[in-house]
Design a protein around this nucleic acid. Structure first.
Length: 318
DNA sequence: AGATACCCCTGTTAGC
DNA sequence: TGCTAACAGGGGTATC
């Protein structure tokens, strides 16, 4: 399930493999949900995407977009278009050499034929590029989506996200806060957390407060910070809240070095290789096992419908 | 506006 | 063994 480190890994892959190339064709989508946010469906997507050049790959939180050299409306200077994607929980953005079946396409060493077959079965959309490769969107559970959107200026003029050369972000993504790795993340996130009486775990997952955090890194960050997930967010001091965000950032930076977390094989990078961070996890998926720090049996509880694993000894409720 | 419940989907796992 | 139910997950939407 791709969170910030996984999406950033993919962003870096795509920056090398796709930027500068032009879209030659777009396949027929194999599932209606892939283009559910695309006005006009596949016809509109093709009309504006084919012939466009991918100018960059930008990420804010878990959203990824490609600014294009095409404008939605030539009368509007701010109507520059971008191709937006969100991977949901099982989306992949793979790059395959043109004309090659995936099982012969130099996939990662950990990838068996069965995995390649699974990938083929879940292929949703394919862009053929003029650099001789295909950009393939695969998605088993169809929570992911792809659509064209105009770019709009960021309110503060700062970059829209990692990899953005200007101060732009896609229309419809304005409500997504800056993420933990964003140097332009402001005090607003800390202030917003401290104003809420809801569980800190829940607030960490709120992408309008601070983005990029999913269930894995929320649990891991809370463990590092020594905070019980059910603690009301407003019970934490400013210092504790800042330390918590710093803990999450630290875990993510660490995970990035490992290429992200592949917990259930749904996440692979653009070459089809899994991330290696799963074995570094302290709590996520380890309920009932012993704490790496103190040996206490890790507890599991449901907070606002999300499973949470924590150490009852190291993470005391405030 | 913030909080809350619900929905989307499919492959895997737990439980009967 | 074979079935069903629960579970996993992010974010959009509707409702209060």
């Amino acid at each position: 399930m791709p969170e910030l480190p996984e999406v950033e890994t993919i962003r870096r892959n795509l920056e090398n493999l796709t930027v500068g190339s032009r879209v030659l064709s777009v396949s027929e989508p194999t599932h209606p949900r892939t283009l559910r946010y695309q006005n006009g469906g596949i016809a509109a997507l093709r009309a504006q995407l084919v012939g466009s050049r991918l100018r960059a790959v930008v990420r804010r939180g878990k959203f990824l977009w490609f600014p294009l050299d095409t404008v939605a409306d030539s009368n509007s200077p701010e109507g520059q278009l971008c191709l937006v994607t969100h991977l949901g929980m099982s989306g992949q953005l793979r790059v395959l050499p043109s004309g090659m079946p995936p099982d012969a396409a130099g996939l990662g060493p950990g990838l068996e034929a069965e995995t390649a077959e699974t990938m083929l079965r879940h292929e949703r959309l394919r862009l053929t590029l003029d650099n001789g490769s295909n950009l393939v969107f695969c998605d088993q559970r169809t929570f992911g989506h792809v659509e064209l959107r105009p770019l709009v200026p960021t309110p503060d003029g700062a970059p829209g996200g990692k990899g953005d050369p200007g101060g732009l972000l896609p229309q419809g993504v304005e409500h997504i806060a800056r993420d933990v790795m964003d140097p332009y993340l402001t005090y607003n996130a800390v202030a917003s957390l401290r104003r809420s009486g809801r569980a800190i775990k829940t607030k960490l997952l709120d992408q309008a407060v601070v983005s990029g955090i999913g269930n894995i890194y929320a649990d891991e960050g809370l463990f590092v910070a020594g905070i019980h997930p059910a603690t009301p967010a407003g019970n934490l001091s400013r210092k504790e809240t800042q330390a918590l965000l710093e803990a999450v950032r630290g875990v993510m930076a660490h995970a990035l070095e490992f290429g992200g977390t592949s917990f259930d094989r749904l996440y692979v990078n653009s070459w089809g290789n899994p991330g290696e961070f799963a074995k570094e996890l302290n709590v996520y998926g380890r309920g009932g096992q012993s704490c790496h720090r103190c040996g206490t049996t890790l507890a599991k509880m449901v907070i606002d419908g999300r499973s949470s694993v924590y150490c009852p000894q190291c993470q005391q409720k405030r």
